[in-house]
Design a protein around this nucleic acid. Sequence first.
DNA 1: TTTT
DNA 2: TTTT
Lengths: 164, 164, 164, 164
Amino acid sequence: MASKGVNKVILVGNLGQDPEVRCTTNGNAVANLSIATSESWKDQQGQFQERTEWHRLTMYRRLAEVAGEYLRKGSQIYVEGKLQTRKWQDQQGQDRYTTEIIVDSMQMLGGREQSGGQSAPAGNQPQRGKPPASNGYQQARNGQQGNNQPIAEPDFDFDQDIPF
Amino acid sequence: MASKGVNKVILVGNLGQDPEVRCTTNGNAVANLSIATSESWKDQQGQFQERTEWHRLTMYRRLAEVAGEYLRKGSQIYVEGKLQTRKWQDQQGQDRYTTEIIVDSMQMLGGREQSGGQSAPAGNQPQRGKPPASNGYQQARNGQQGNNQPIAEPDFDFDQDIPF
Amino acid sequence: MASKGVNKVILVGNLGQDPEVRCTTNGNAVANLSIATSESWKDQQGQFQERTEWHRLTMYRRLAEVAGEYLRKGSQIYVEGKLQTRKWQDQQGQDRYTTEIIVDSMQMLGGREQSGGQSAPAGNQPQRGKPPASNGYQQARNGQQGNNQPIAEPDFDFDQDIPF
Amino acid sequence: MASKGVNKVILVGNLGQDPEVRCTTNGNAVANLSIATSESWKDQQGQFQERTEWHRLTMYRRLAEVAGEYLRKGSQIYVEGKLQTRKWQDQQGQDRYTTEIIVDSMQMLGGREQSGGQSAPAGNQPQRGKPPASNGYQQARNGQQGNNQPIAEPDFDFDQDIPF
DNA sequence: TTTT
DNA sequence: TTTT
């Protein structure tokens, strides 16, 4: 509802794998996605270099459902969200930290046949008896809230997450 | 020089402490800063909640020098940059990951007396025989390169970094 | 509610004058502000050049009220919004176009005494029996809607607007 | 080289027509493009509404050449740039203003067959004896300059432009 | 660790 | 018309 400062991330990239979608105990969907961005340049020796960066995304509610229904490995998306670093304990009981992008809004890019399709439907998406839209123009936003709004998800057990 | 995708972060926040500025063995400055953003909301019980997010920033070259000269604990800045996750080994030899924002451009905010001043000059800033500017309107960008360009810093030993 | 594409503007600048706040016939506040950004460079003759860009902002509802209460000529703000070009007729009946930024979210910058104060209270702000806050840390967002959502303002007579 | 404030626009949209590319008298390319973004919503009567916004883009140098070679009507792009309003006189000698986005960086979206192709090659693109790339992953940035840098183009006759 |  |  109120913010001090600005915490904004804008990414355009392709999914490294199908989204993982789960439900919280109170019935809200949560999706985890990873997308890649990369850059390439010539180094001082004139050699071509490339660096790929992987970004871990988290989506909630309607956005998570849309991701589960329409996104697949290879899908290209635009996302806007905020950075969030959460603390967890590894098996040795050590504190560890993972930084994720909590997504506020998402756009599927490329239209037409580009998104979805090839990869087999993952078992964890909410099934709704509808095939994925054949055109990629879907947009989604978490319904009842503006950007940057914290989402209370007290019953979601992040401790069980595999570190990214 | 070329990118596939977009990797962009925009932050406005206040420094949690004075910048740490070092030099690489080839004489380039590197600065580490941490800035806070926060958001507050009423939870379902009507209780006021606040969450502060800390962001680790890395600046290079001229931008790092400017940070060392003009920024202090409490300074409010706007930064634009990209996400980068680097791998390092902890003392047990375990792989760990830290996500940082590599800053492409920075703006000091608030003007007037706001930035610098109160906190004692840290010993690690490049001294140039000039006092910090009394006004905060400084802007900086890494001179010879556009945004999103990878910066080769092969001689900088990140492994010695204390994890964020 | 749904978007095709992304239409996003991010500005940090200072108000050229006090905000103008009006009410629509159904009681919603509308504010118009103009803010400046500038850039400077050396031209090929080594001469220092500066260019100032003026941006026309429009805010609605709660955001407009906050602007009227807390912002003054000279205030530094961060805004996020979208571009919108509206058509109007000049006195010769010619079509003309004005591009504005419809603001989704706003942050006052600089803290402390920076905002408000010096300039006399304009007569057109909603009076609420409270003086402007002495500190600038206020943030606002249009309450019941997310970003990028069109705001139906059918009863607001834009045709009477003075061109920017 | 230096900025006061931030002036940033981020758009994802589709070209309404092929880019128009020209050369300045000193041999630099300049491209004009228009791209659409749109949003749709249900109004208070439950009727579906849609609003399309058209954005006028200007690109210089290498970016303009890339646009001329690879972009066509319908191409989907991501652009980042800054707002600039320029003044011109209409045939009655009246001052008029046009707001454009001066593009700093561009990404072609959608990959594969999506971009280029169908529409006949416009006569005004620099011909280079190469067919358009069959895959859309091209990125471009104005070589020798960072973002937000003013580009001196004193010999380009904007007065002859048809108003947007 | 900041800021209000 | 701002700001430095």
